[in-house]
Design a binder for these strands. Structure first.
Lengths: 155, 155
DNA sequence: GTTCGTGCAAAAACTTTGCATTATC
DNA sequence: GATAATGCAAAGTTTTTGCACGAAC
């Protein structure tokens, strides 16, 4: 299901706009359309190419350059988070209204499962502090076989 | 300090060679030189470009294509591990004879600090188990500002 | 009206590939 | 001698950039 139902488009655009105003940037038609596309998308983790595909048949088209530039601004605005799953391209994910979470990825079927553990967050801060490091964010991925795949062919 | 002192070049080449033989691949002069360069390198995390630099002035030269191809084989052989730090290029690291560890990366100067926490490992297994997930490996990166950069310009 | 954003195509950065030649087993 | 590896340059990917034109504030 698309996420438009779960997430309030207007609220998100407002948040984006207030960020833009604070930075003396402009809310353009393209930026608005990009946000709408992201909210309407099936995938929770998408790349620049996914957006590009969606704009391919629509007009007015939104160009590649604009998409890349907008994704950067959306990350700065805290609306998107950027991920690296070891693929050759970057993936993004809506952070709006969600708690921070990390990921388990099934190496057999590619499913991504999200999890959150306060205990883990605390431990990470502790490790960083011990090394005099001032953490801004982190990325944790656990790779393995998910429940379903394990049931199907347990070897 | 280079790591040649810490790591046994001959042992590593033997391991590599036995992998190659098992796969009916060949131990060429270039592959041998690449392994030696990696052992002699200062950096613990390096990219294809780092190796390329080292071969730039030496002859016979080892070509870009050969380096990329060799890195792939070395990962398959379990001699190198591949990482993704959200940069535009892949980094590699010797896995030989080292305990598993995770990484902190300074987003200002790019320094990578390693850490290991048993507590963290245990917690990850616990989280995975709770979700019926059978973990094979994981990757954890904490991003932030390192001690030195923090001292220099603390804003 | 100023400043910022867009589209386009060109460039950049990194990696892969095709192919004739050479080395290893 | 068969098979795999190399070097080179060319092509692929994904992302970034320069610049003239257009849109937002």
């Amino acid at each position: 299901m698309p996420r438009a139902a779960k997430t309030d488009t207007k609220g998100l655009l407002d948040k984006f706009d207030s960020f833009l105003q604070r930075k003396s940037l402009k809310l353009t038609a393209q930026r608005r359309r990009i946000v709408e596309q992201i909210l309407g998308m099936e995938k929770t983790h998408f790349g620049a190419d996914d957006l590009l595909d969606q704009f391919r048949d629509e007009r007015p088209r939104v160009s590649k350059a604009t998409i890349y530039r907008a994704l950067g601004v959306l990350v700065e605005a805290g609306i998107l988070e950027q991920h690296d799953f070891g693929e050759s391209h970057r993936l993004f994910e809506l952070s709006e209204g969600r708690d921070h979470h990390d990921h388990l990825m099934c190496t057999r079927c590619g499913t991504i499962i999200e999890f959150h553990s306060e205990e883990m967050e605390a431990l990470q801060d502790k490790v960083a502090a011990r090394l005099g490091f001032h953490p801004t964010h982190h990325s944790q991925k656990i790779f393995g076989i998910c429940k379903d795949c394990w049931k199907q062919g347990k070897r």
